[in-house]
Simulated assay, not measured.
Amino acid sequence: MNDEINYTNNPLHGLGLQELLTQIVDHYGFEILYAYLNINCFKTNPSIESSVKFLKKTEWAREKVEIFYLYKFKNLPRVSSEQFELPPRKRIIPEGQTPREPAELSMEDAERVREKQAQKAAEHGKTKRYGNGKPDRF
């Protein structure tokens, strides 16, 4: 019971995946979702039903969509490092934080975000360690 009280301030509390997806698709559309999240169910013959089916089976993708819902659609401030480690549905939103208007998103912004992510991944991958304990340079 105590756990239930803690999560009632989370906008995901009591919200089904189909309703969540319907809200963000109605606002942003599948093209923006694919551009920001890079999940194929939003690109190839997208529909609410097929996306829900995929997201129910795929935890990483569902969490990615839930994070998008909280921090882009509900436009909540980023969470503390302790809350960041928790899945989106188990995060506790502090009392003073309330959802705001959805963030303005564009295809151009999505492209910049993807470029930054690719750059970070490339920088991170330059000094990977392998079984011999020595970093390999690419």
Rank of each mutant, 00 (worst) to 15 (best):
L15R: 12
L15D: 01
L15M: 13
G16V: 07
G16L: 07
L17A: 01
L17F: 02
L17D: 02
L20P: 00
L21I: 05
L21K: 02
T22E: 03
T22R: 01
T22N: 03
T22D: 02
Q23F: 05
Q23K: 14
Q23L: 10
I24L: 06
I24G: 01
I24S: 01
I24W: 00
V25H: 00
V25C: 04
D26S: 15
D26F: 07
D26Y: 09
H27W: 08
H27C: 04
Y28V: 06
Y28D: 05
Y28M: 05
G29F: 05
F30T: 04
F30S: 01
E31W: 03
E31L: 06
E31P: 02
I32P: 02
L33D: 00
L33W: 02
L33F: 01
L33Q: 02
Y34D: 07
A35W: 01
A35P: 00
Y36P: 02
Y36R: 05
Y36N: 04
N38Y: 07
N38E: 12
I39G: 00
I39H: 03
I39R: 03
N40L: 12
N40Q: 14
N40S: 14
N40H: 14
C41N: 06
F42C: 09
F42E: 06
F42L: 08
F42K: 06
F42N: 05
F42P: 08
F42M: 09
K43L: 14
K43F: 12
K43M: 11
T44D: 12
P46A: 11
P46Q: 11
P46D: 10
P46S: 13
S47L: 11
S47D: 12
S47W: 13
I48M: 12
I48G: 10
I48C: 12
E49A: 14
E49T: 15
E49V: 14
S50N: 14
S51P: 10
S51A: 15
V52K: 08
V52P: 06
V52D: 06
V52S: 11
K53Y: 13
K53T: 14
